[in-house]
Design a protein around this nucleic acid. Structure first.
Lengths: 134, 134
DNA sequence: CGGAATCCACCACGATACTG
DNA sequence: CAGTATCGTGGTGGATTCCG
């Protein structure tokens, strides 16, 4: 505990981000990951096509990519059943499940979506006044 | 509490997303918004350049864009002081401040980053076995 | 200082095949 | 069924320049 530990340093924070949660956001909230994790968490194990249908607007290619990434990050578990026809199942991992309270929090914040919508209307209503001074 | 509330409907979920938190994610976790909100929430009101320096890797163009978006969504308040030289200050709004617990949750989940890293190492270690069957 | 305007590069995503 | 391969594009972000 001598003073040869980090010398207070500049407050410039990390070189990368001024924000400690950025890495988590990158992992958990990159495109399509939330619908996938939500579905797996909420409705349990799914086959590929089931996910595809459940999410509907995702293409198989992108679904594959995202599932790979989630599997790699340890948030999703992939199980291959060597049958004919082949069957693959995806389920949320324990690590993935640990995100549940977070998701619940997020869902809870949804009650504020109306305020956001209203803020947008207000903003758009007074913004045509070009120049945006004041 | 009669059964004339939402008639069960199809479970096909929303047409857009199979996931109710997607809208919130779009608003709160789009690119750069977290560092900005985090800084404003954590360190209070900032001038444009201060934010620029604090975040460091962001370009003024993108910073402007994101600040506009956040202002429009009611998460950030912009105050213009007509002086010479001009001075503009950004601070988090009450609505933005309501995200604080969420951010704290996220920050708390950071303890799992090591597990993610380990999962990646494991995955990469066994993946060179091409074919990815099993 | 606090931006706006312009130009450009990249790649994530979508669409459309095809396969074990 | 559960993907992979290939191609094309648009939209986002970076770099640069200029302005009130």
């Amino acid at each position: 505990m001598t003073n040869d530990t980090i010398p207070a340093a500049r407050i410039d924070v990390a070189p990368e981000e001024a924000c400690p949660i950025t890495p988590v956001v990158g992992i958990v909230f990159s495109r399509w990951t939330t619908p996938i994790l939500w579905v797996l968490n909420e409705y349990g194990r799914h086959r590929f096509v089931e996910l595809e249908r459940r999410i509907a607007t995702i293409t198989p290619k992108v679904l594959t990519e995202r599932l790979r990434q989630l599997e790699r990050d340890g948030l999703v578990v992939r199980t291959y059943h060597p049958e004919v026809p082949p069957r693959v199942e995806y389920e949320i991992s324990e690590l993935g499940r640990s995100l549940a309270p977070l998701f619940a929090s997020l869902a809870g914040w949804s009650i504020n979506l109306g305020k956001v919508e209203q803020a947008r209307l207000d903003y758009d209503a007074r913004e045509p006044v070009r120049g945006r001074r004041t």
